[in-house]
């Protein structure tokens, strides 16, 4: 009984220590901003590997999600004779929810796991120690550009996801199911609000970009420098990011759209 209590206490303390280390790491990453600004190439390189290389999965997923929304939306709306409002339903679903959330989940799976594995392997192969001994701070040089690349790339990828999704909805709704094209676009234009819908969606994806990239970098930097350690850290990145995104989405939605 006492042993179990001690184990519980120890794991609680370990968890708190881990949260503390993650926040200290975040602080040092943010402090690295002044060091990164005179070296924009570092950020551009990371924007490419974190952002540009994620474009394909975002485009394909966005298209299919938009097409499914078109099919399902038409099924429900046509029952109430409101099939012309399909564009509003597709766009609102994407811009408010699915764009930021699904993009963040895909980002965690593709870019987040890659970041964790990269940092973890750099640690395991002593590259981070090597930088330290060359009097180069690995947090400033390696982690900070990756963090800001993730933070910047996420809203851009989410915007792309939503835009492609709207096109996917149009392909199915207008092309296959016979919704009027003019009604699809004009209803959307009249109803979707720049501040209420689009800005709130952008805020969500900024929060998700911050969180997912932070989790990915922390897990990589804190991983055990072994193959099993890096593998576990990569799994943790995907699981923790997905849970954080879904939890934060509920909180943000309640704050933004709750009555």
């Amino acid at each position: 009984m006492l042993d179990q209590l001690a184990r519980l206490g120890r794991s609680g303390l370990d968890y708190l220590a881990s949260v503390g280390r993650a926040h200290l790491l975040l602080l040092r990453i943010l402090q690295g901003l002044s060091d990164m600004l005179p070296r924009p190439r570092l950020l551009i390189q990371q924007l490419f590997s974190v952002g540009v290389l994620s474009v394909m999965i975002i485009v394909v997923s966005g298209l299919f999600v938009g097409m499914v929304l078109g099919l399902q939306g038409h099924y429900v709306l046509s029952k109430f004779g409101a099939a012309e409002t399909l564009g509003v339903m597709v766009a609102a679903s994407l811009v408010r929810e699915l764009g930021p959330v699904v993009t963040a989940l895909l980002f965690a799976g593709r870019a987040g796991s890659a970041l964790t594995a990269e940092i973890g392997l750099m640690k395991a192969t002593e590259q981070l120690s090597g930088l330290e001994m060359m009097a180069v701070d690995p947090i400033k040089r390696v982690l900070t550009p990756r963090f800001f690349a993730g933070f910047i790339a996420m809203p851009l990828l989410a915007a792309l996801f939503s835009a492609i999704g709207v096109v996917g909805g149009h392909l199915v709704g207008v092309g296959l199911l016979g919704v009027d094209s003019g009604a699809y676009w004009s209803q959307m234009q009249a109803t979707i609000d720049l501040h209420e819908d689009i800005f709130n969606g952008v805020i969500k994806s900024l929060v998700f970009g911050f969180t997912c990239t932070w989790i990915a970098l922390y897990q990589g930097y804190d991983s055990l420098p072994t193959s099993a350690g890096v593998s576990r850290a990569t799994t943790r990145t995907v699981v923790h990011s997905a849970l954080a995104v879904l939890g934060l989405d509920f909180i943000l939605t309640a704050l933004m759209f709750g009555e």
Partner: peptide, 16 residues
């Protein structure tokens, strides 16, 4: 201070 030190790691620790 580390600018005055060089270190050869067992693994080489080259940036891959």
């Amino acid at each position: 201070l580390r600018k005055q030190m060089g270190m050869l790691f067992q693994s080489g620790a080259l940036l891959t």
